[in-house]
Design a protein around this nucleic acid. Structure first.
Lengths: 235, 235
DNA sequence: GGGACCCTTCGACGCGCGGCGAAATGTCGG
DNA sequence: CCGACATTTCGCCGCGCGTCGAAGGGTCCC
């Protein structure tokens, strides 16, 4: 019984991620924002020509989308499935040694609060899910009735999220915390509202987000006094 | 604000998966069984020397483990995290075109029932989770009380699975069915019992498993008459 | 101990791919 | 229409890596 391996062809996709420069580009795009080709080249530390070649290959492999706007071309991940692959991969990859003070500060910022493509991750994301569970708003893989009321009251389009083709409210394993945060359609909808309300805003470091004063207050009121993140601010 | 990408280093791990031969080896090991270096070489369609080189690199990268037994060396995936990466990757990878009758038969066998590293997947896996949900044995991300009784009665070590460091009963997205099957520690424990009881046995094609007559009967009794898999057997 | 078998190491070959600078294409503002 | 800027295309170089056959350890059995 000769058998030739004929499963899904994972090698080509893996090859796209395998190059350090492309990996840097994809990781930068994990922030969820679309970035211009030039910015990506700078972030990855290569010439515009090189970055362009990589982006064209990523486009070919359907890992990224492009939207043309004037003389800029903004690239973004092709979908949440791609983001999931990157996150899972990060989970079994070595974390690089910290070489400088600035790097360690950036690392701490990312551990504190970041976006995982389109939803909140890091200590903040894990904390949010914990509060939702403790308050009886979330159980198993779904919102409870009170939870649905709580989030709807906040402005989250729960019905819309439920109707999406994407999984509603799965737990997403957080690779810095090694614990779950809220992912899926609901995670994205909640995060959208957090930004709209100005409770979180994007930081200078690509994927990082920071809790604002309004956010601290709003969340404290929502969950009656429990902090979402650690007490000491990252300086 | 210069920023140098400094997340987890996903490129090296991706590079290990990126080679077609190594991908074939890893995919073969997704069956959950440890396989000898020679078998892997044959399956990947490559000389023993080449396979050996690849296996040594996979070993280095901690994607596989090896256990020496006499003159054989049996390789297996290093853990369920590795299996998860491969499954997620398969989800966004193109399925290769079917070229022969034998291949299409193998493909159908895998769609019907296979192992996803250490738990049941394919139509059989998805069906099992559906029955558990329909019967009120499983809800959200956990077993109900009746569900715990049902599985314990079958011989599943539910308490042991709950105590494991691994997630207890997550839904695992099935890349052929695009729906969830039972994964995690509980998924593995249930699958172990299914094999022990002889309800399923491993097929000739690497990751495939087949429902036995005892299995058909036992599961029908368990879920009062509902078939786990499609009606027509794969010939 | 000898021979069969499994697996790895060694040495050599060739191709694919990532890198860049320079030039071409495209877009905006005047 | 022209100069500044963003991005891509082109041509070229260099090296890393996958491949194999042959040879070298190990292990088993007679």
């Amino acid at each position: 019984m000769e058998y030739i391996a004929r499963d899904a062809d994972i090698a080509p996709v893996a090859a796209l991620i395998a190059d350090p420069t492309r990996a840097a580009i994809l990781t930068a795009l994990l922030g969820g924002r679309a970035l211009a080709a030039g910015e990506l080249a700078r972030m990855a530390g290569v010439s515009p020509a090189t970055a362009s070649a990589h982006l064209s290959r990523l486009l070919d492999g359907r890992l990224v989308d492009v939207v043309r706007q004037g003389r800029h071309r903004y690239y973004r991940l092709a979908g949440h499935e791609v983001a999931e692959v990157l996150e899972v991969l990060a989970g079994i990859s070595a974390r690089p040694p910290v070489r400088s003070l600035r790097q360690s500060r950036q690392a701490r910022l990312l551990e504190e609060a970041r976006t995982c493509y389109d939803h909140l991750a890091g200590k903040a994301g894990v904390g949010l899910l914990d509060r939702l569970r403790e308050g009886g708003y979330y159980t198993g893989h779904d919102l409870t009735e009170v939870g649905e009321r709580l989030l709807s009251g906040l402005g989250v389009d729960v019905a819309g999220a439920r109707g999406s083709r994407r999984r509603f409210a799965p737990e997403c394993l957080d690779w810095t915390e090694r614990r779950a945060h809220l992912g899926g359609a609901l995670g994205a909808a909640v995060t959208e509202v957090l930004f709209e309300r100005g409770w979180y805003r994007r930081g200078n470091v690509p994927r990082a987000v920071v809790l604002t004063d309004e956010g601290r207050e709003g969340l404290a009121k929502l969950f009656s006094g429990k902090e979402l993140t650690s007490v000491t601010p990252v300086t």
